[in-house]
Nucleic acid binder design. Structure first.
Length: 232
DNA sequence: GCGACAG
DNA sequence: ATCTTGTCGC
């Protein structure tokens, strides 16, 4: 898994890449059953002053949620944050981390959106297509979409809407706590994506995958010297 | 035209 | 994302 050498340099080119890759998303697979095999969380942290980005990939045993493997990667920030183009900022570092894992990632859980995206090709869909891995997005904020408040009990959902189109689901992972926003990335159904999210949230609002990856990439960023960058 | 907008 | 103290609760 190498960083594509034609990685976009401009916003217009990035949008063209999204339009070009969107057709490769696979939507007719259910995806792996929750509670079996591996589930991998990925996340990225930034240090604008040092111009550094750190990514982490943490593989969990889906049944026990224990850590099976982890990897980090540090590099230069290669793209600004532009709403709708998050993937271009995060993916190079994430690919480097995934490539360093000692075991297969299984299902990848992203901190952000999949098909719930202005061009229907968010981070999780993009990462899924580039790696071929099943992927879902679990976001903390509704982005530009609308939704009704899900009922109070854990497990309640309401559709995440772009107009009349259901692009994902607001999912309550803890009683009475604000929901997370789940969307399909690649090779996983929305029902299964929500089932995985619930299996990954026995104790917290956010999936264990996201929590582990978040903690690890922050630590990697702190410990980064700048001399240990991955090659581009 | 202006603001809002995953991380 | 990141900058940040104390505080309430399991």
């Amino acid at each position: 898994m190498r960083i594509p050498d034609d990685w976009p340099a401009t916003e217009d080119r990035a949008r063209a890449v999204q339009d070009e890759l969107r057709g490769q998303v696979v939507l007719d697979e259910t995806g792996p059953p929750p509670g079996t095999g591996h589930v991998t969380g990925v996340d990225v942290a930034y240090d604008d002053d040092r111009d550094l980005v750190a990514a982490a990939a943490v593989v969990l045993d889906a049944a026990t949620l224990e850590v099976v493997a982890e990897a980090t990667a540090v590099g230069r920030i290669s793209f600004p944050y532009v709403p709708g183009l998050l993937a271009f900022r995060e993916i190079p570092a994430v690919l480097a981390a995934l490539g360093d894992l000692s075991c297969p990632p299984g299902l990848v859980v992203c901190d952000g959106y999949g098909l719930a995206h202005p061009r229907r090709f968010g981070l999780a869909a993009h990462l899924g297509v580039l790696t071929g891995l099943p992927a879902i997005g679990v976001a903390k904020k509704p982005f530009t979409f609308t939704h009704d408040e899900p009922a109070a009990p854990r497990g309640s959902t309401s559709p995440l809407l772009a107009g009349a189109e259901e692009v994902g689901r607001a999912l309550r992972t803890r009683d009475g706590v604000k929901p997370v926003f789940v969307s399909v990335g690649h090779r996983v159904s929305l029902d299964n994506a929500c089932a995985h999210t619930l299996a990954l949230t026995p104790a917290h609002r956010l999936p264990e995958t996201t929590r582990r990856a978040d903690a690890l990439c922050r630590r990697a960023l702190k410990e980064a010297t700048g001399a240990d960058e991955y090659a581009v």
